[in-house]
Design a binder for these strands. Structure first.
Lengths: 225, 225
DNA sequence: GGCTTGTATAAAGATTTTGTAAAGAAACTT
DNA sequence: AAGTTTCTTTACAAAATCTTTATACAAGCC
């Protein structure tokens, strides 16, 4: 068993099916998403080793999805697209795509290109466990520990914490966090954030009243250090 | 100047010329080889950051050249080939090529693919940091430091400081600053500015009474140096 | 000097933003 | 269907930030 997980993002069920079968018969683990929102949530909750991203999604422009993913997702992304214009290709590659295949593509070539990008990304042997002082976060198994003790986080708490961790040191605006976690229509619901930040602090900080990891940037957002 | 060196391996002189011009005009350094033997010697003597390899060389099969190179050469190799058969593509990718472009290819796409593979091989994600003496400002992370120490700025202070930094040396008028930060209806509230300039000086200057960075231009505005 | 104009700083007051608890709603479990 | 967990919403307290006021200083000019 390969145990390498690939996330397929495509709105056409036939293509997902075809890809799933192809990949599974080559010993990859597969997860699927049929739209942009689902793709981002899946990628954040359970980051795959590679993402196959169709640019023609129903709910959002594929280039935007790519940009959003690349804000934190560092593993390979291969674009599968019906568009073969140079403009699209250059834009996607410059937005951080590792490869770009035009549909319809040849299965053997796709598999070879997958092997290629996985090879060049795995040589950096990325440790899926991030360590911040006494806090560790194992992205692969979705486990957060504080001084070896496992901390139980709800799905939303974990997504929020992941985002903060992956952007260590950077300020993430309320706007951005709300959009990433709850979706674009929630960008004014800052109260949600406060509640969940408070919950994270209660679970993760030594002294929740004087947080040392999750820092408030008043008027702007939050920062993780 | 980019100073990234690329080795072009192709037996056709016109293609080498064309590639050389394209790459040089995009700030890459270029070296050339016209056959397999030369290619391997050049790569060994002076390893480039990337190799563009034509598979149709006169003295040896391109796939063999690729294999030989990959025995020790770990940086990106992009194949340029007239053959578009799946067999060739898969074989090249599995032999360690990072990408495979079929001739004739589009220049913009080639450049984008070069950027892509260079990016994923060099993976230094440096965020731009502006440095002014002992003051540094990290725009991506929204962090200002004075002698390595993080200085906590409020939202408005930071916006003001950014404006000054981004216009280093220039005088920014009261009018302009007020308009940018508080909006057009505040252009007469110069007192606001004085308060915030004073606060910035208190936090950032060695001696706030004798500022060396944030300079008053009496009657006009402020200047940052 | 006395006057005016522009600037600097501290501190009080007002406002905005953030933190916390807790209740109600919704979604899952068993 | 009852119980549990998680999410959403409300209300209020606490903290941080912004605005305003008061006062002082410095430079230029009559």
């Amino acid at each position: 068993m390969n145990s390498v997980e690939i996330l397929i993002v495509d709105d056409e069920v036939q293509i997902r099916k075809m890809l799933t079968i192809t990949l599974q018969s080559n010993d990859y683990k597969v997860s699927e998403a049929s739209n942009a929102k689902e793709a981002i949530i899946r990628a954040a909750n359970h980051p795959p080793e590679l993402i196959l991203l169709d640019l023609g999604l129903p709910d959002e422009n594929g280039h935007i999805v790519l940009q959003k993913l690349r804000e934190w997702y560092t593993k390979p992304i291969i674009i599968l697209s019906a568009h073969s214009s140079e403009e699209d290709i250059v834009k996607a590659l410059d937005n951080g795509a590792n490869d770009y295949l035009v549909k319809p593509f040849r299965t053997g070539e796709l598999l070879a290109r997958i092997r290629s990008v996985l090879r060049s990304s795995s040589q950096e042997d990325e440790n899926p466990i991030l360590i911040f002082g006494d806090l560790t976060i194992d992205l692969a198994s979705r486990v957060v520990r504080k001084k070896e003790e496992i901390v139980k986080l709800t799905s939303t708490e974990y997504t929020l914490f992941c985002l903060l961790c992956k952007n260590e040191g950077k300020v993430l605006t309320h706007h951005y966090l709300l959009k990433q976690i709850w979706g674009p229509s929630y960008i004014n619901e800052s109260q949600y954030l406060r509640v969940f930040i408070a919950q994270l602090r209660k679970k993760l900080e030594d002294d929740p009243n004087h947080p040392t990891h999750i820092i408030t940037e008043s008027g702007v957002g939050y920062r993780f250090i």
